[in-house]
Amino acid sequence: MSEAPIYPHADVEICPGGPMLVRNAGAIRDADGQVHRVDKPIVALCRCQKSARKPWCDGTHKLLPPEKRPQ
């Protein structure tokens, strides 16, 4: 019998064309130095710089043409 596989799993994930997923964060410091408390086990951080809710992703990257989305 083969061993059960160990799956690669990360706390931080870069989503092509989209946000950065962050797990188990206590607080996030944004570009202006402001600290945001995190009360969820997983959050999405904006990478396209167009979110109206920075540092959080609000899905705005989907309104950008593909070449303007973060890699």
Binding site: E13, P19, K40, A44, R53, W56, C57, D58, G59
Partner: peptide, 14 residues
Amino acid sequence: HVTADAVHDQLAVR
């Protein structure tokens, strides 16, 4: 749902 589903769509698709 604006911020929660910005996480959920990535989880659901990927």
